[in-house]
Simulated scan of single mutants.
Amino acid sequence: MVAKLKFFDTNRINSQSGFDFTSADAARADILYDNDNSNRLFSNGSNDSTPEVWIIEFSSVYNLDALAVFNHNIKSGNVQYWGGAAWVNFSPTVNWDNNTAANNYFSFARVATKKIRLTMNTTQTANAEKFVGQLRALTSLGDLLKNPTEVTPKLTPKDFDYTTANGGSVYGIAGIKYQATVKFNNTPNVDQTFLIGLKIRNKPFYFYPCGGEGQTDITFRIDDMYLVNFTGAVSPKLAGKNLFGIGIDTSITLKEV
């Protein structure tokens, strides 16, 4: 039903990071990590002859094994990490060449680094300002052995609905938040242990339903990566009620921060 879903720690790019941009306004760098894909950080006066380079220094050395770049207009460019003495390519490399997609996810062999460098050379519309909506430097929390048998998403509005004195309706909406129930059949012990570990860490994490293999369906696209809390219990049950030895079914509930 879905590609192997993924779980990541919070973005290593955050308010404690340092930012060095060619022309973009570093005072607005929070756009890159505000979990709002619709906002974008722009270069200022760039064109296809002028690379826009963004160096981001984390608050500490972190292990990275994935990058997400959402709502961007990069046609050609790359991302590298600081290896201690020089800028180094990830393996496999993270780069764009004649790219036409607005959202990209890259996974690579884990590296330990304190800095990354995003170089944007050309844009999908010639000589436009470079922009990025979300830039996420990610550390995997681990993988499951088995795919879920069911992911039931729900897009819940934060809204109000009042009835006026004459019986009319006043309605407004301030946003929509994601939540999902994820169910597994015959869950192996290692997956049950991983899910319990997610629960007891008691911190938000990124839930990536498509696992980087995006579909066209909403909530399973490349840019549908959600910062969630594990709000419910880990709910294991015997697949055959009172019959031992035939597996455990498990379900979890996640809600967007």
Rank of each mutant, 00 (worst) to 15 (best):
S91K: 11
T164L: 04
M120W: 07
G77H: 08
L41V: 04
I55P: 02
D159M: 10
Y105C: 04
A101K: 14
S60Q: 15
N98I: 06
L144A: 04
S140G: 05
W54V: 07
Y162I: 13
T163Q: 07
L144K: 00
L67G: 09
G84Q: 02
N71P: 01
T139V: 07
G142S: 03
I74H: 00
N103K: 12
A101R: 13
R110L: 15
F106Y: 10
S91Y: 11
W87L: 07
G77K: 02
N35A: 07
G142V: 07
V132W: 04
A24R: 00
W54T: 08
N44E: 13
V69K: 06
R117T: 12
R40I: 15
I56T: 10
K115D: 06
W96S: 10
A101I: 09
A85D: 14
S49E: 15
V69D: 03
S49Q: 13
L138N: 02
E129F: 05
A101Q: 12
F160T: 14
T152W: 09
E129Q: 10
D48S: 12
A29P: 02
D143H: 07
N37R: 14
G45N: 09
S76Q: 05
W96T: 09
I31N: 00
G84K: 03
W82Q: 08
A102P: 02
M120S: 04
A109H: 10
F108C: 03
T93Q: 09
F42V: 00
T22R: 00
W87H: 03
N71M: 04
K154N: 15
L138V: 04
W96V: 11
K130Q: 08
Y162T: 13
D161F: 08
K154D: 14
N166Q: 13
L135S: 05
E57Q: 15
F58Q: 00
Y33Q: 03
S107W: 08
R28W: 11
Q124C: 10
D161L: 10
D161V: 05
G45R: 06
N35E: 05
S38Y: 10
D97E: 14
F58D: 05
A68I: 06
F21I: 12
